[in-house]
Simulated assay, not measured.
Amino acid sequence: MTHNKILRCALLAALLIPCLAEAGVYRWKDASGRVHYSDQPPPANVRVEEKAMKGSSIEQDKQPYAVRKASEAFPVVLYTVESCPGCEAGRSYLSARKIPFTEKKITTAEVRDEAAKLLGSKEVSAPFIVIGGKVHKGWLESEWATALDSAGYPAGKAK
């Protein structure tokens, strides 16, 4: 085979592997009790157990590389309270930008103390966001956008 043909075959195989990996696997026993595994359905008179395959044994993260990289270096934590328009706006903004974040609702004394320590005050107000350890008080879209951009999160299109 020529180098070109080998390259074409390798490319075709690489394109087909994900399709094959998504196929179901059937597990069934025959009349003598032997267990069979197949990607083809067994005979009609056999009880079937179908298992869905998940791509490969190594799950792949669905987030873009830039987002994974930024979230490892600068994780985002959103502190919120109930009935808070700014909290809802901040949550919506992060979701629209597809920023992975942890939301901590300030409903217990433990979370309230944690928030007070981060804010450096006994008074706790929400929302506020922590990006890689740096606190940004209040909801101000332009400030959050600048901080997230600086942390390496893709700009995206927030609504």
Results as ranks from 00 to 15, higher is better:
L78S: 04
N4V: 14
A96L: 05
S121I: 07
R68I: 08
P42K: 02
F101C: 02
K134V: 14
G120H: 05
P43K: 12
V111A: 06
G24D: 15
E141W: 01
P43C: 09
S150L: 09
T80P: 02
F101R: 05
K104R: 13
G33P: 03
G156Y: 04
L148F: 07
V76A: 05
R34F: 11
I99F: 00
S142W: 03
Y37A: 05
E123L: 12
K137W: 04
K157E: 13
P42A: 02
W139P: 01
Y153F: 15
M53V: 11
V48D: 03
K98S: 12
V111I: 15
S125H: 10
I106S: 00
I17H: 08
P154W: 03
V67A: 05
L15I: 14
A23W: 09
G24M: 11
V124N: 05
T107G: 14
T107S: 14
Y79N: 07
G55T: 08
I129F: 07
S32F: 05
A147I: 03
V135Y: 07
A158N: 06
S57C: 08
C87A: 05
E110G: 00
K122C: 01
E141I: 10
A151H: 09
A14L: 15
L11H: 10
A13D: 07
K117P: 00
R27M: 13
G120F: 04
K134T: 15
H36T: 11
G120K: 06
A89T: 06
S92W: 01
V25M: 11
A73V: 10
T108G: 04
V46H: 00
K29S: 13
E88G: 04
C19P: 04
H136Q: 10
A116R: 08
E123G: 00
K62T: 14
K69G: 02
R27C: 10
A145E: 14
A31Q: 11
A21E: 09
P42I: 01
S57N: 08
A147S: 12
A151Y: 10
A14C: 14
K122H: 12
R47C: 05
P100F: 03
P75F: 02
L20T: 05
V46L: 02
H36K: 08
V81E: 14
P100D: 02
F128G: 01
S92C: 04
G133T: 02
S32D: 15
A66M: 06
G152W: 06
S38Y: 01
V48A: 03
L78H: 03
K54N: 10
